[in-house]
């Protein structure tokens, strides 16, 4: 369970995350949605200790993220941000192998190799495993980073816009993979998503943020409703049921 209480972040005078208190359930997929600048990524950064909060506390699986040892947290919780700029020149396999660092400190064991190969397979990167990251397209690189956090094999997976740069097929594959991680491996997956239809189709729980606060939250079926969504995005959004799934239409 991820519990945030009264988490606040200010940039100068602007309050980006304003006293957010949330309890994200153990297991399943939780999607955080909301308009640009709602504070979704900032919240995720604070939950994953990448950013210091001005106020409040966050516990992940009972560990206070600002106090617990970083290496212990790294075996519990993994985070992937949108922007993964780095200067290091690595192959896909090298990058994925870094996911095992919290477990083996850079000396790969046989067990690590199994995890690495499995993560590479899961993300369909077998053909690219020995290519350098700077030789790949944005979407392929994105998948390599996801493979790395999968290899990290943590109970909690936090991903900030994991569908960035992915084509339809790989976006669908990514969400299926998250579903599989939640259902088969019992992971708790938290995603920041912009595509509310992906959120509707794949998540158990949706949290909507607006102006740094939680605007609404609940089961996916309760959240994907015209009145709720229109209020959050301040636009006209229609919801249709197609093949048992709630699909939003908002194209004009």
């Amino acid at each position: 369970m991820i519990i945030t209480s009264n988490v606040t972040k200010n940039y100068g005078a602007a309050c980006v995350v304003d006293g957010v208190s949330l309890q994200l359930p153990q297991g399943g997929i939780t999607s955080i949605i909301g308009p640009n600048g709602a504070g979704k990524s900032t919240l995720l950064s604070m939950v994953s200790r990448l950013m210091a909060m001005d106020m409040g506390t966050v516990t992940v699986g009972g560990l206070d993220v600002t106090k617990a040892p970083s290496d212990e947290l790294a075996r519990r919780l993994s985070i992937l941000r949108q922007d993964n700029h780095m200067t290091a020149r690595l192959t896909v396999r090298d990058l994925v192998a870094f996911g095992r660092y919290p477990h083996s400190r850079g000396r790969l064991t046989l067990d690590d190799k199994v995890h690495i190969d499995r993560a590479i397979d899961y993300l369909d990167l077998g053909l690219l495993a020995d290519r350098f990251l700077d030789e790949l397209s944005g979407g392929q690189r994105q998948r390599a980073f996801v493979a790395m956090v999968l290899a990290q094999d943590t109970d909690y997976l936090l991903l900030d816009e994991p569908l960035n740069n992915l084509d339809m097929k790989h976006a669908m594959g990514m969400m299926k993979l998250m579903r599989q991680a939640a259902d088969d491996l019992g992971k708790t997956v938290v995603l920041v998503l912009h595509d509310i239809n992906f959120a509707s189709w794949y998540s158990d729980h949706i949290v909507a943020m607006k102006h740094g606060k939680v605007a609404a939250q609940g089961a996916a079926s309760a959240m994907i409703r015209p009145d709720v969504l229109s209020g959050i995005y301040e636009m006209d959004i229609k919801v249709h049921e197609i093949g048992g799934q709630l699909i939003s239409v908002y194209y004009g």
Partner: peptide, 13 residues
């Protein structure tokens, strides 16, 4: 060398 965010994610103090 993976950058600050990744280093923290991977448990470097």
């Amino acid at each position: 060398s993976l950058g600050r965010a990744q280093a923290i994610n991977l448990g470097v103090d």
